[in-house]
């Protein structure tokens, strides 16, 4: 493995976004969030606080949810990135997208893409048996997604309209259907 040194303050970056390989020449300071929004015109992912506190920018990288605002695009060379646009289309919504509509789990909608990407990653983490602070038995292999578990596992996503009860309902619908 060779060490790559960029003398300049820009770099050629290639990663896969929603199944398509994308190549970009970017200022090294470009966050993954800004690369998606400003350079690939994927405006579904939102910039809220830009400091990892609100979760509006949540995307999946290699299937794992992260805050795209606190990651440089250059750190994601070769990664597989999934945004809200990759989870479903208007005529082919994901289960969580349908549940958010059914349960009216938003008001202004600004946090919703982050909520849905986060919940998608969260359900996968729970299915893998990852514990949370709300898990009674740390050694359990089966996570029972109680309301307390869902709340704890979604605490990285803020909703300033405070649609939390409906967000919880929507996620519980999908988690319950999967169980």
């Amino acid at each position: 493995m060779a060490s790559t040194t960029a003398a300049a303050n820009a770099a050629a970056i290639t990663f896969t976004v929603n199944g398509a390989v994308r190549a970009l020449d970017l200022d090294l300071r470009t966050t993954l969030l800004d690369a998606l929004r400003e350079h690939l015109d994927l405006k579904g992912t939102k910039k809220g606080c830009d400091h990892g506190q609100c979760g509006a920018c949540t995307v999946l990288v290699n299937g794992v949810r992260i805050n795209s605002c606190l990651s440089l695009a250059v750190m994601h060379q070769g990664d597989e990135i999934t945004t809200i646009e990759g989870l479903g289309a208007a005529d082919d919504l994901s289960d969580l997208q349908v549940a958010f509509l059914d349960r009216d789990a938003f008001q202004c909608g600004y946090c919703t893409p982050g909520q849905i990407c986060s919940a998608t990653g969260m359900l996968d983490e729970a299915a893998k048996g990852w514990p949370s602070s709300a898990t009674d038995d740390l050694n359990t292999a089966e996570i029972d997604l109680t309301d307390a578990e869902i709340r704890e596992r979604m605490s990285g996503n803020i909703c300033r309209c405070s649609a939390y009860p409906q967000i919880l309902d929507a996620i519980r619908d999908v988690a319950g259907a999967a169980a």
Binding site: M1, S3, T5, A6, A8, L28
Partner: peptide, 9 residues
């Protein structure tokens, strides 16, 4: 601005 490298080891 900064320069960047990915460490080999």
């Amino acid at each position: 601005p900064f320069t960047y490298e990915r460490a080999a080891d």
